[in-house]
Nucleic acid binder design. Structure first.
Lengths: 134, 134, 134, 134
DNA sequence: GTGGTCTAGACCACG
DNA sequence: GTGGTCTAGACCACC
């Protein structure tokens, strides 16, 4: 079964980020492996009924982050994740996201235990890909 | 020492959200307790050098979420958190946040173990309030 | 005939609430159905001769309540109503509204029978949508 | 047992209106009868821990509507409700309140049946006072 | 004094 | 094109 995307219209999360997040998660999960080809910008835009610019934006972000590579005339492919930013810089960006998640969970009336369980469940699907040498 | 805010201008996360997030997190961590008074809209706006409307927007959101209460002529106060969001809506909003966090962590070259540890550490600071009686 | 709005300037009811109330009622009465597009923020602001922010405020409230969905670049659409408010919070907010209505009716010299009849008549127009499938 | 007031701080309903609404409802219910004396502005303000101006505002509104009468040196008393406004004007003011209630109920995810039942329950407590001759 | 509403207009993110 | 954010400043309701 090929990898499929799920788009939620009207979400506060922009569509281009939903697309990119799903690719990132699928790579982390091992559901998308190195050398897998992704749909072309045009094809994916048509399939998801979104603007091609939106798909292009997601692919651009993913390429900049070292997840994918566009090969002229061939298509877009998953590549071994390149390390792109430093440890300290990464942590500096990640920490507020965790803080934001906790704040949001509290606002949504979840308990600490519930959030911990939800995160653990999502994380348990995450397999570190074998050829991430860094 | 009174609770102090830290605003990063030029961040992609809007100022009103930075303010609200810090209050949410401080309540979760027990740094802000029930009946504590927050700075007035005008005072905080002056302190942070932002527009009063921006502070008001943050306070409005927090009040709607059941964290605080605005008392006319008195000011803004932390209250025992009310449950306002339905269960289903809560999950609907929480899940993409977790997916986004994991996606970002992968993009930032963190391993599953590192993210899990970081989240666990942050979560350990979340104190469910000891049945706060006013 | 497209749905039209009626604004009473100088009313004690804020304009953004008048707009939102009319949408809520029209949805309840079946005059606005799922996938109907509302006027854009700018267009409605021009039509009603109010500030775009005022219209945006009404739309934001309606979106948060689960009546409508803003699709970037497309516009604002009626969606199948989502349940967003917890049961307890719902009652907490509804009860004072009913008390206020009865109090106002008494102040306006209506009898119990008159009020009951008026409410029943209005309620009879409230059509639960027939399990709207988009 | 004397009539007692219940004030919800931080409600969207202003305190002066909460006080006035409770008097109106109690008169409609027959819990407050003609010639009953209400607490003085000062006494009630102290009891409810609110600003005396707030109580005075409620009493002023009630007096204007013909519910109560201040007798110099004696105190404040319930009087036979005087008819203050015309039928048409009353209906013109009441209708949007009913519309607003229905819209709010829909926003709070109540069904038509639930709202009808809630209103009926409140209304069933309403006894038209015997000496309302109009 | 407090917060809530509204206007006016700029800038940006998204598609 | 759309809506979301922010600023600036006015006015009002409430206490």
């Amino acid at each position: 079964m090929p990898f499929t995307f799920n788009i939620a219209t009207g979400s506060s999360v922009p569509i281009y980020k939903q697309i990119a997040d799903q690719v990132r998660l699928a790579v982390a999960n091992g559901k998308l492996t190195v050398e897998t080809q992704l749909p072309s910008v045009r094809a994916l835009a048509e399939e998801l009924v979104v603007n091609p610019n939106t798909v292009a934006r997601a692919y651009t972000d993913l390429a900049r982050e070292g997840f994918i590579e566009a090969r002229a005339g061939k298509g877009v492919f998953i590549i071994p994740k390149r390390k792109v930013i430093s440890r300290e810089e990464g942590w500096r960006r990640l920490e507020p996201l965790i803080d934001g998640l906790i704040g949001e969970a509290a606002a949504l009336d979840f308990s600490r235990e519930e959030l911990e369980q939800a995160v653990r469940k999502k994380l348990s699907q995450w397999k570190t890909p074998p050829n991430n040498k860094l």
